[in-house]
């Protein structure tokens, strides 16, 4: 295990060390101690490594992650796993606003609550939130899957494209063009799989969720509107 003391060695040294690892390496286990809410911890990693951050993080932890598994043993500030490409990010505590924003791939697991704009403009990422999510979550979400074991705030999935949203609890309100949709066997299968990978299969059953998606009236071209262009 390689240990990195952020209060001693500093952020730039941590990230350049992690960036120097590419693809497969034999230094696969890393821990970061004394994060103390610092920004940009383990951003831009592109290697098959496992990084454990022992404490809470500030802005943009694990942003743009590729391949790596990054665990936050605390809460994460705004923009955790922003634009993640692949790999896994697991936050033991809560996540602040826009968790997983614009994520293109990989799996983000938040074991506490996520606040506003979770999964905003997601483009392929999978997000599992054990608790609740705040308002404007999955705004303009394009693809990928989000599952929420708790409740969702106002305007869920506003201006949604093709992302799939599953919520077990209540939804305070749906955003424009977001509707509830039927659950089919393939969705139950998808949920079972994602709950398992999101370390949540002991907490919820697929049958307890409702599915939400795009009504596809906003983003598809309607010939009646041709004169507006």
């Amino acid at each position: 295990m390689q240990s990195f003391d952020l209060s001693k060695d500093g952020l730039r040294a941590l990230n350049s060390t992690l960036h120097s690892l590419r693809g497969e390496t034999n230094m696969t286990e890393w821990e970061v101690i004394n994060p103390k809410g610092s920004h940009s911890i383990a951003v831009g990693v592109d290697a098959l490594i496992d990084v454990t951050v022992r404490g809470s993080t500030g802005y943009y932890c694990a942003g743009m992650n590729k391949q790596a598994t990054i665990r936050v043993k605390g809460s994460a500030g705004p923009g955790v796993a922003e634009n993640m490409m692949s790999g896994t990010v697991i936050v033991d505590g809560d996540a602040s606003q826009y968790a997983g924003a614009t994520g293109r791939g990989g799996l983000l697991v938040i074991k506490g609550n996520a606040s506003s704009r979770c999964g905003i403009s997601m483009k392929g990422i999978e997000i599992v939130v054990h608790g609740n999510i705040g308002h404007m979550s999955a705004f303009m979400a394009q693809s990928g899957t989000m599952i929420v074991l708790g409740d969702a705030g106002d305007a869920l999935g506003d201006s949604l494209y093709e992302a799939r949203l599953f919520v077990r609890g209540s939804v305070k309100s749906l955003g424009a063009d977001c509707i509830e949709k039927e659950m089919r066997p393939e969705h139950l299968e998808l949920l079972a799989n994602l709950l398992e990978r999101g370390e949540a299969s002991h907490l919820a059953k697929p049958s307890e969720f409702k599915r939400y998606g795009s009504a596809r009236t906003l983003y598809t071209f309607n010939v009646d509107n041709a004169s507006a262009y």
Partner: peptide, 20 residues
């Protein structure tokens, strides 16, 4: 930001949350 709170006494055991 959480950074501002990290040196407060017993912060590890405080209830920490984002105001709604």
């Amino acid at each position: 930001e959480y950074r501002a709170l990290v040196n407060l006494p017993d912060i590890e055991n405080a209830r920490v949350w984002e105001p709604e």
